[in-house]
Nucleic acid binder design. Structure first.
Lengths: 184, 184
DNA sequence: GCAAAATAGAAGTCATCACTCCGCTTGTCA
DNA sequence: TGACAAGCGGAGTGATGACTTCTATTTTGC
């Protein structure tokens, strides 16, 4: 129960950071050794922090969710209710430029993305609920929408953007989704 | 150049069919042996028809694209121009009930989904182009849309639906996308 | 400064999996 | 109906990669 040493904390963070980059770039098939190397860390260390590859992947995923939840919360409190939801979606989807492969990453690791029992998932759901409610109250989002749809659309839009060739195409896809959210 | 034996043709079809089902259900990580078993075929046979796992996966994918292209073409000629595009999207996306994991399947196999050089891809693009043009002419789709966006939205919507818990949620997601396609 | 905690990373274990090889079976065509 | 090539099944092979273990070394906290 004693708090971990400073270098342990540092290494854990470095592993997560490197893992995200490598996994997103090369997919879940990359070896743990590769990830350890990218993090500048021995294999033993990696496995002490994350006893299985799956837990490492889940760690990366949950870190991402936490960042999303933080963004959503910030926008929900600071932003204009009428535009906050759209801004969030835009931000979230642009976040990892090269590849938003995080969900398919998880899926191919055999993790069920819809398993929303964890704490980061709960936090994101809650933040999205607030964002959505405010948008609906100010007429910026269709009334029948609920949080699960929002999450789905988030993942889906991110997927859709992978197919966009240029910036114009990207912005058109985004425009379609945003218009759809509004209509109703 | 002699035509293949009857049993060979039959087996090839059975492999493709079983592979689609197993791959969609369990992801690309399933072993080829599992696929062979599902097809009721020996491993040797599987590998004679598809010399590598990647070629098998690509085969499944292209078969799917061909079916999509056929559907699109049929709707483009037979259907009401104003509703054909929406109908197509609805159909395409509902096709594989459990999981429309085909694209992430390919992606995790290291195949670039956006590589549109193959014949089935070309056929689909062409059919979609017709569908889109007719929809735009009858005011059922925003004018600025182009085919790549449509393909992206197809994949994205399919992804989004994976998150929908129940039928109501599914239909709301679909409604968002369809409204977005129209708006403009 | 020292004990405890943590690390690097080499070497090894074990399971898995894509793919090969080859003896047997079956479709085809005379 | 018989011969024979095309096709088949499935045991076997080699590579890979997740995870363990261990020793010598470094880092941290008090």
């Amino acid at each position: 129960m004693t708090p971990p040493r400073a270098d342990a904390i540092r290494n854990r963070a470095r592993i997560l950071e490197a893992a995200e980059q490598v996994l997103v770039e090369h997919g879940t098939t990359v070896s743990t050794e590769e990830i350890a190397k990218a993090a500048g860390v021995g294999i033993g260390t990696l496995f002490r922090h994350f006893p299985t590859k799956e837990e490492l992947i889940r760690g990366v995923f949950e870190a991402r969710l936490q960042r999303l939840a933080a963004d959503a919360t910030r926008l929900a409190t600071d932003g204009d209710p009428a535009t906050a939801l759209a801004t969030f979606l835009r931000q979230a989807v642009e976040q990892s430029e090269v590849k938003n492969a995080l969900t398919s990453m998880l899926a191919s690791a055999g993790v069920d993305v819809r398993d929303l029992t964890g704490e980061p998932q709960r936090a994101l759901r809650e933040a999205l609920a607030t964002l959505l409610r405010k948008a609906q109250q100010s007429g910026a989002a269709r009334q029948d929408l609920e949080v699960p749809e929002l999450i789905g659309l988030l993942a889906g839009t991110s997927k859709a953007l992978e197919y966009a060739g240029d910036a114009a195409s990207r912005s058109r896809i985004l425009a379609v989704v945003l218009a759809g959210l509004r209509a109703g």
